[in-house]
Simulated assay, not measured.
Amino acid sequence: MPIHSFLNYLALEKKYSQHTITAYLKDLNSFQEFCNNEFDKQRIIEANYAQIRSWIVALVNANISNRTINRKISSLKSFYKFLQKTKEIDSNPLAKHKALKVPKQVQVPFSEKEIRNAINLLDEEVDFESLRNRLIIELFYTTGMRRSELINLKLTNLDFANETVKVLGKRNKERYIPLLKPVQNSLKKYIEVRNEMNTNETYLFLTKKGKKIYNTLVYRVINNYFSSVSSKVKKSPHILRHSFATHLLNEGADLNSVKELLGHSSLASTQVYTHSSMGKLKEIYNQAHPRSKKN
């Protein structure tokens, strides 16, 4: 069976979780059920784009969200790519399909109080992991760096003399970000404990076993601590980067300066964060504009 072969292929790739593989199976079975009902039990391996479009229309009419429909179609597209690779079909019927438009989700930054409370949870702890976790939160919030940039920081990237950290961003573009005094102090405390570990790793952030940290560990650190202080749905490293930019703009920072700190190649990318700052901007505007003082 092609579907079972596809799922076995995903399992062997070792980059797909069981949850993801189960989602693929559910999506493929959903389309197969549609084909059974609408096209006289036709196998999905034989489906053409017009028939897939009929399924998409049925999903839309069933009030399934565009985001969910896109996921289902993505599963089907991956399945057909696999069939092409194994030469069971000549062409992918979804090769030219364009995903349905989905509304951009407004990401709500953490408040200054939430960030302060998350850091305070680690105030009394002085063991290796607590010092590391506090520093991870502080660096995200005070530098706005990306998760991949933080993970790949090396000890040699730190310049205490000039109070900066060198970050390697997208397309290997380097930038230098200032380090606040409290963060420098946290760095020195962490490095002092880190130096006691028996490791030759050159990366700044390590696991307790002396290995380079990884994506899910960093996400878990942020999610765990902020779950204790925030009721926001999304609690991730990117929300801390979002908070960094939003809070700077709220305090009157120049958009171009924030762009450079974030490592964006264009202002268009940075302007996303001005949405969250609009409330503060309106407040300043209403207080300062001469017309606001007239009844």
Rank of each mutant, 00 (worst) to 15 (best):
T199A: 00
Y49C: 01
K26N: 07
I284P: 03
D90L: 07
N256W: 02
M1I: 00
G169Q: 05
K235N: 11
L261M: 10
L153E: 07
K77W: 03
N8Q: 14
L168K: 12
L168E: 12
K293I: 00
K113T: 13
T143Q: 06
E138V: 04
G263L: 01
H19C: 03
E38S: 14
D127F: 12
N195I: 00
E260C: 00
Q184C: 13
E46C: 02
L155N: 15
N8M: 09
P103Q: 05
S30M: 10
C35M: 15
Y80L: 07
K189S: 09
L100W: 08
V183G: 10
N120P: 02
T199E: 00
R291Q: 14
H247A: 04
R291H: 13
A161Q: 15
S91W: 00
H97G: 01
V126R: 09
L122R: 10
L59P: 05
G252K: 04
A245P: 09
R134K: 15
Y141H: 07
A118F: 11
Y225L: 08
S148Q: 14
E163K: 15
E260D: 03
F82Y: 15
T20E: 13
L187E: 08
L217H: 14
V60K: 15
N70A: 07
L267E: 09
K232N: 05
L240A: 06
D123H: 13
P103K: 02
D254R: 10
A99Y: 04
N224P: 04
S91I: 00
Y16I: 08
N92P: 13
I213M: 14
T156M: 13
F82W: 08
K189Q: 09
N157K: 12
H19W: 09
G169H: 06
N195F: 08
S65D: 14
E114V: 02
I45R: 02
Q51Y: 13
N8A: 09
N37C: 00
K96E: 10
E38D: 08
L249N: 13
N8L: 11
E124C: 04
N92S: 09
H289Q: 05
L83W: 01
